[in-house]
Amino acid sequence: MNLLPLPDLLAVGAAIGRAVVLLLIVVLFAAYLSFIERRVLALWQDRYGPNRVGPFGIWQLPADVIKMLFKEDWIPPFADRLTFIIAPVIAMSALFISFVIVPVSPTWGVSDMNIGILFFMAMAGLTVYAVLFSGWSSNSKYALLGSLRSAAQTVSYEVFMGLSLMGVVAQTGSFNMRDIVEAQQGMWFIVPQFLGFVTFLMAAIAVTHRSPFDLPEAEQELGAGYHTEYAGMKWAMFFVGEYVGIVVVSALLTALFLGGWYGPGPEWLAGFWFSIKTLFFVMLFILLRAALPRPRYDHLMAAGWMVCLPLTLLNLLVTGAVLLMQ
């Protein structure tokens, strides 16, 4: 193996550096989101929220992390060890890995894969194992009920999550995220693909188990759902995994439907526009949690199969017809 010339080595190093910085930003922001969510929810509900630790309570998260780290890492004696340990790892990593396909600016992005969107769908398909395995290995009825619900919900919503994106793919003619963003230079895909946007947003909420679609962990009925038996850092990984999911899905919504890094102003503002749009979706996710009650489970499934699936099929049909006519 011969070494690359120095300029190439520098380029490789810079690419790796950018990738590490981006992924670190995502995971740190996701962790801090737990604090941001509590503060923002409190604001909308006319309360203060956690504001004791440091100025405006910004040290709440480090305090929580320290508390979590010093908790006993306990595995219930009736649990199945292998799957009990592997579940939180999947919960945190599966959606996190799929961030690699998101292009943040013309020059920043982790990986430029040809199969971009498909990679995200593959990873989203694997997230369901976290819930399945945690529910089964916990050996408790609430956890099992939660994970059964989650499996049915995720599998149903993944069907039209893929279909809702196919309109975007058909208009661009590529699965590559960078091509998709560049195809939105004239008009953001939220306008011609509005049905796709709405259905993908719903599917995204269902796949990340966010309220109002958080029936797998509905606390009134199921205790804490699939992670009832978890404590300490393992529980924290589920918790952070949920926020990582929100950040990744918001970034995807930005890149797929809101024109990614495009916005007024000079080119170097690209990263800024991308962050602002992503932040908008993150806040939307939190606001939805504050505003909407949880639907009944059979209503949720019926909405998925009888409303969203036909809508996405219709969207794909119309998109295909329009593209053929042009």
């Binding site: 769908m121 593959a122 369901v128 194992y129 399945l132 499996a151 995720t154 599998v155 993944e158």
Partner: peptide
């Protein structure tokens, strides 16, 4: 396979 069929098996 991994994301859909095996999920049904595990289910």
């Amino acid at each position: 396979y991994a994301g859909a069929i095996m999920v049904l098996f595990v289910f």
